[in-house]
Every structure is written in structure tokens, then in C-alpha cells.
Design a protein around this nucleic acid. Structure first.
Lengths: 319, 319
DNA sequence: GCGGCCTATGCCCGTACGGGCATACCATCG
DNA sequence: CGATGGTATGCCCGTACGGGCATAGGCCGC
């Protein structure tokens, strides 16, 4: 359609040159439905001459007559039959478009892309997704796992609608966050690990074991280091740095390693045990982050609602 | 849609309440194609504010925003994506409607319903159909066989577009006919029939054989009777009255019966022989009959053209 | 910091669009 | 023959539609 209009403007183009109106389509289908001009006029709540004139307009635009006039109403010509069919299809398509928009606006259709890293992905997100899908089955949920910084840029570029995870104190311009709950961080080791025998062991008592540390970009890493520094201890030399939760878990299960994990992940695994060391200084504020300028899409809003609900049900357990 | 508008007029109805124009659809698709308002304005040969305003109108009508405005053009929202898709479909459907009408008008699409009885259906009609279909392959030809009076009423009610056959001198109001050729009627008997031995036998010489007569509604029956009366002969008592050409043929082949048939049918059958009796008084004017008031549909006109051509090529053989 | 490239706003204008009313015309039917 | 039920015509009217011009305003990138 970028060709300038030097080609002969035949009937095909006439349809879209602005003369044909949607009104004409409803007129034609109305006449076809009612079988007469007066009938169509009644059905469309206008007077009969309006319908007659409108019909004449369409026929002039198309260059063919659409109905044969009889004394007992009108009957479609072959052109009429063809055009009526298309007109019906067009109107149906438009109605469909309207319905679709309604569904989208009511979050009964559409998609929400949620990013997650670690916190929240174990219990909160699956529960929220399950309850969301039970309410809006036709809604598509796309979960993307990545490091928090990647997720932030994805939020800014619009590749992701919402992220859930550890809230960072410094938030880039254009993003907003909402706190859902504060989840303590606990030290974890395999069931049967010797550390479980101790009552409120200090970091010093545990420093001799091998450790799993978060990679250095994360907040938790910094806080953990600070904790060691505060106790006057060096960072354990015998350590692994790892982000993959599956790897972390296997390492914990098969070795005597100790790791710091969000409590909801630590407690949920029967093969792991939470060490009795209190870490009151580390509470991960878990929540959602989303673009601040635009309003959320309905689907995103729906997911957010369910995240809030599930977070509220989760909060009592996080004493 | 016959329900009066007491139900809540939600977005679905807004699309068809007259506010949304086709123009809006072209605007939206144009913006989507070009990726920017200025681009769409250029492509549509209008100024940029027009496009901006139009876009705002659609968004107001639909109640959602269709594009996110950026500094580098615009990008569709989820609503935009959905609506653009439907808008494209609608416009494509309209273009398709235009193309279809063009095809119909140029008789490259459509159907012609032709009625036939006996004369013309043996050679003229099949040849005309073959040549018509070779020129317009997508054209549907519907052949209906019935007695002439039924065909006439079918023409008048519009159930048939055209009939080919014996022209009747008395034509009902509203029908017109066109003569294509004059086809002699000949007496026919099986090959090897004793009558073939005679040179220009008179009716009297043949009256002793059994005869096949047309049924009494037909013109040919009347003419045949008149012929016998003119020669002072009674109508043969040993006779069958039959309209089915297949039955007639079998009767002729398996008995010594004599029948009067249009020459083009009689001569075309190797197992039948034309008796040497001249019947100059009976020449069947063969032609087409069609409704007089309305113009013929393009497909009908096309068939008529080919009927004329084939008739012209047939005429030399009818000395 | 300035110019380019977007979109958005405000204002103006002519026309045709969408619709009503009255009436003519034409066929059928009782 | 008139009544009825169709369609077609002519005329009138208000408004909103479709578009142009000028300009404002935000965000790059150089």
C-alpha cells in the first residue's frame, strides 16, 4: 500500500477510499436479514427513506445492484449474495475484536511475563500462578528466571511485566516496587549435619565447614560478608560460589557444606535442616518490582493481586 | 440483533454504534505498519495531526490505548496488537469483497442455471458449456432438464437464468427469446429398419409401423398431429407417448418404431437412421429464452455469448 | 546546548453525512 | 375500486467528520 495511487482505481480500491462506511454494511445486512427495506428500517430504528438512500449509496459505490426490488420486499442479486456474506464477516470480525478487547481488559485473556530469581519462586510464585489460573484459565503466564540486574533491564525495556524477588534499596528510575513480606535468611545444611547438634551455634563455630556463597552481584552476598566481618571472622576460604538453586541443593545434600537460603526455601525441603543460628540482621524484603510510568496490564494486575493474597497467607509463618 | 437495546451497551456494541469508522481501521493499521504517526501520515497522504487525532478517537471509542508513545515512534500495546490484527482482517475481508464483485461482474466467478428440454441439449449446449468453461473455469454451470412449461415458470420466478430449446410462438409476459438456428425435424428409425429402403416414403406408407409421439403438451406433438391430419391420415393407434430421450432411443433401437426427432439428435446416433421423408413444414426454431425485464447476470451473458458462437458454427450443417 | 525527530494541542473551515418529513408511485389483494 | 404494503424521490436540517495550519513540548544525539 505504499504505492502512490497511479494504478487504476478500480472497484477494489473504491471500498477503502473512504466512501464506504460501516453503516453501509449494517444497512445491507439488515436489509438482507429482514428481506425488505421497511423491515430493515424498523430493525435499525430509522425511517425507510434512510435505508433506501443508504442502499443506493452502497450500490453506487460498488457499481452493481445488490438487491432486486419486488413488491414483496427485496431479494439479493448474485452481487448482493456475495457482498452480504462479506459484510456479515466484516461485522462479525469487528464484534469479535470488541469481545477480545473486553477479555483482555478483564484479564480473562492475555499474558503476563513475570521474572524471578530466587526469593519467592519457591512458594509464593507457584501458589499465585495456580490461584490466578484457576480464576482466569485462558491467561498465559510466562515465567522467566534470570539474575536481578537482567530482570531490571527487562522490566525497563518492556520485555517483562513484573518481577518478584528480593527488594533492592536502590531502584532505577522508572521502576516501582511493593513489599510483600520479609523473609528471614537461615543457614542450611543437610539433615544429619553435625551443626544441627549445636544449640544456637555462632558463625565462628560453623566457619570450619565448607560454605556455599551467593555470587558477588547479589545483595545477600554483601550482607553475608558483612556478617562475617562483624563477627571478626574472615570469609571462609573453603567455599563455592553458586547461583543455581539445583546445584546448591545437591551440594548441600551430598557434602557437609553450609549455605544461607531464604527461609521458605530452607524449611520446605525435608532433606535439608535449618541450623539453629539466628540471623536477625538479615531479613530479605521480598516483593514485586514493575514499571512505574505505565499502568500495569490487566493480566499483570491480576497476577499482582494473587501475589498479594498468597503473600498475606504466607506472612504468619515468617515469625 | 432484534433485541431492543436494553442490555448494557458495553464495548462490544460501541464498535458498531456508528462511532467507529473504517477510516479508523486504516489509520490504526497504517500506524502499525509504519511504526510511527508521522510515517502513517505520509503513507496515507494526510498531515500528522490528523493521524494523531484519529488514533485518539479510536482509543476513546475502544476505551483502551492502542499504542505506547515513545520518542522513536510508537509501539502497540497488548490491546493494540489484538485490535490491529482484527483491523487487518476486516480490511482484507473488504478488499476480498471488492475482488469478488469484480470477478462476478466479469463472469469469472458465479453461476448460471440453464434449463433445457430436448432441442439443443444434444450438441449446442454441451459445446457451449465446454467452450465457456475453457474461458471461465471458475464459473459454475447448472443444467436443469424439465418440460418447457416448467422451465418457463422457473425463468419467471428466477430459479433459472436461461433456457435453451424450441422457441414457442406465444411467449408469456416478461420473457424474451432469441433465435439461434432452425433445426429440421426428421423421422427416425433404427438402422436396418425397412423404412430406410423406401425413397421419400409418405406418411401413409409409414403409418403402419408403431410410432413414438411426443407428449401432448409439446409443440411438436401438435405439429405432428397436424401433419397426419393434413395428409388425411388418422393418428397412429399403435403408438407410445414418451418424453424421455433415453427411453425413446431404446425403443427405437429394439423395435420397429418410428419417431420424429430434431435432426441434430437424429443424425448424431450411429445406430439410428434418418428416414428419407421430407418434413419441410416442421422446422423447430431453436434458441434461448430469458427474463426480459432484468439485465442478464454476467455469467448468463457469458454463456449466451458462447451459445451464439456454437450456434453459428452449427448452422451450416442445417441445410 | 542546540537542532532534529517525534507526538500532542488548539483552532479553523467546508462539506457531506446521517436522518427526518412528506409524497409519489406501483403492485397486490380484498 | 380503494386499501395496503412496498419502494423511490425530493427537500430540509444540524452536526460532526475529515482535514489543514501553526505551534507546543519532550526526548534523543551530536
Amino acid at each position: 500500500m505504499t504505492t502512490d495511487g497511479t494504478d487504476r482505481t478500480d472497484r477494489t480500491d473504491k471500498l477503502l477510499d473512504g466512501r464506504l462506511k460501516l453503516r453501509h454494511l449494517t444497512l445491507v445486512t439488515g436489509i438482507a436479514d429482514q428481506g425488505s427495506v421497511v423491515g430493515a428500517a424498523k430493525a435499525l430504528h430509522v425511517t425507510q427513506p434512510v435505508v433506501t438512500r443508504g442502499l443506493h449509496e452502497v450500490e453506487a459505490i460498488l457499481g452493481v445492484s445488490l438487491f432486486d426490488r419486488g413488491h414483496r420486499g427485496v431479494t439479493p442479486t448474485i452481487y448482493g449474495e456475495s457482498f452480504i456474506e462479506h459484510a456479515r464477516a466484516v461485522l462479525a470480525q469487528l464484534r469479535q475484536a470488541g469481545r477480545q478487547l473486553d477479555l483482555l481488559a478483564r484479564a480473562e485473556l492475555g499474558r503476563v511475563r513475570v521474572g524471578t530469581h530466587l526469593a519467592g519462586s519457591n512458594l509464593l510464585l507457584p501458589r499465585a500462578i495456580a490461584s490466578l489460573k484457576s480464576e482466569h484459565p485462558r491467561l498465559t503466564v510466562i515465567v522467566r528466571e534470570a539474575t536481578p540486574d537482567l530482570l531490571q533491564t527487562a522490566l525497563l525495556t518492556g520485555d517483562t511485566d513484573l518481577t518478584i524477588g528480593r527488594l533492592t534499596p536502590s531502584l532505577p528510575q522508572g521502576l516501582a516496587q511493593e513489599r510483600l513480606y520479609a523473609e528471614p535468611v537461615r543457614l542450611v545444611a543437610r539433615a544429619g549435619h553435625p551443626a544441627h547438634e549445636l544449640r544456637e551455634p555462632t558463625l565462628g563455630q560453623l566457619a570450619g565447614y565448607p560454605w556455599i556463597f551467593p555470587v558477588s552481584q547479589t545483595e545477600l552476598r554483601a550482607e553475608l560478608e558483612e556478617l562475617f566481618v562483624h563477627e571478626g571472622l574472615p570469609i571462609p576460604a573453603d567455599r563455592v560460589e553458586c547461583t543455581s538453586i539445583l546445584t546448591v541443593r545437591q551440594l548441600l545434600l551430598t557434602t557437609d557444606m553450609i549455605a544461607a537460603l531464604p527461609m521458605l526455601i530452607a524449611e520446605d525441603d525435608a532433606h535439608l535442616g535449618v541450623i539453629d543460628t539466628p540471623l536477625p540482621s538479615i531479613r530479605r524484603s521480598v516483593g514485586v518490582t514493575f514499571p512505574a510510568d505505565r499502568p500495569l496490564s490487566p493480566a499483570t494486575g491480576a497476577l499482582l493481586t494473587h501475589l498479594r493474597q498468597e503473600a498475606a497467607r504466607l506472612r504468619p509463618g515468617l515469625a
